[in-house]
Amino acid sequence: MEKNLNYEEAYEELARIAAEIETEAVSVDVLAERVKRASVLIAFCQAKLRSTETEVNKIIKQMENQPL
């Protein structure tokens, strides 16, 4: 995966791939390539979401432990 790829870019690329496949704009010759790229993007997005959830939960716990 590219080092500078962010969630928004990955999601947009994934949406483009899905649209190509849905509208049959992708040829059979490159279909497997697009599906493979989509699976990589999905894994990236899932990892990013899990990481963000963990970080947010950590911040919430810290806030809850601070005295008012």
Rank of each mutant, 00 (worst) to 15 (best):
2 E>T: 08
2 E>V: 12
2 E>C: 03
3 K>G: 10
4 N>P: 05
5 L>V: 15
6 N>L: 10
6 N>R: 12
6 N>V: 14
7 Y>W: 04
7 Y>C: 01
7 Y>M: 07
7 Y>G: 00
8 E>W: 00
9 E>P: 05
9 E>Y: 04
9 E>T: 12
9 E>I: 10
9 E>V: 12
10 A>M: 07
10 A>D: 04
11 Y>F: 11
12 E>T: 01
12 E>G: 04
13 E>S: 10
13 E>F: 02
13 E>C: 14
13 E>M: 14
16 R>E: 13
16 R>G: 09
16 R>A: 09
16 R>M: 10
17 I>L: 13
17 I>N: 12
17 I>E: 07
18 A>I: 14
18 A>E: 14
19 A>D: 14
21 I>H: 05
21 I>S: 08
23 T>G: 13
23 T>Q: 13
24 E>T: 01
24 E>A: 13
24 E>P: 05
25 A>L: 05
25 A>V: 01
25 A>T: 12
25 A>R: 04
26 V>F: 06
26 V>N: 07
27 S>Q: 02
28 V>T: 14
28 V>M: 03
28 V>F: 10
29 D>G: 07
29 D>S: 08
30 V>G: 06
30 V>C: 04
30 V>D: 10
31 L>D: 09
32 A>Q: 07
32 A>C: 02
32 A>Y: 09
32 A>G: 04
33 E>S: 11
34 R>M: 08
34 R>Q: 11
35 V>R: 11
35 V>C: 06
35 V>H: 03
36 K>R: 11
36 K>A: 00
36 K>P: 00
37 R>P: 02
37 R>A: 00
37 R>W: 00
39 S>W: 03
40 V>R: 10
40 V>M: 08
40 V>G: 03
41 L>Q: 03
41 L>T: 00
41 L>D: 02
41 L>P: 05
42 I>D: 11
42 I>G: 03
43 A>E: 15
44 F>S: 10
44 F>E: 08
44 F>N: 10
45 C>R: 04
45 C>Y: 00
45 C>F: 02
45 C>S: 06
46 Q>C: 09
46 Q>I: 13
47 A>T: 07
47 A>L: 10
47 A>Y: 01
47 A>G: 12
48 K>W: 00
48 K>D: 12
48 K>R: 09
48 K>C: 04
48 K>Q: 08
49 L>H: 01
50 R>T: 07
50 R>M: 14
50 R>Y: 15
51 S>G: 12
52 T>Y: 05
52 T>G: 12
53 E>W: 02
53 E>D: 10
54 T>R: 11
54 T>L: 11
55 E>T: 03
55 E>P: 01
56 V>I: 10
56 V>N: 03
56 V>H: 01
57 N>H: 06
58 K>H: 06
58 K>C: 03
59 I>W: 11
59 I>T: 05
59 I>V: 09
60 I>R: 05
61 K>G: 14
62 Q>N: 15
62 Q>P: 06
64 E>C: 11
64 E>Q: 15
65 N>K: 07
65 N>R: 09
65 N>V: 10
65 N>F: 09
66 Q>D: 13
66 Q>E: 15
67 P>Q: 12
67 P>W: 07
68 L>V: 13
68 L>C: 05
68 L>W: 06
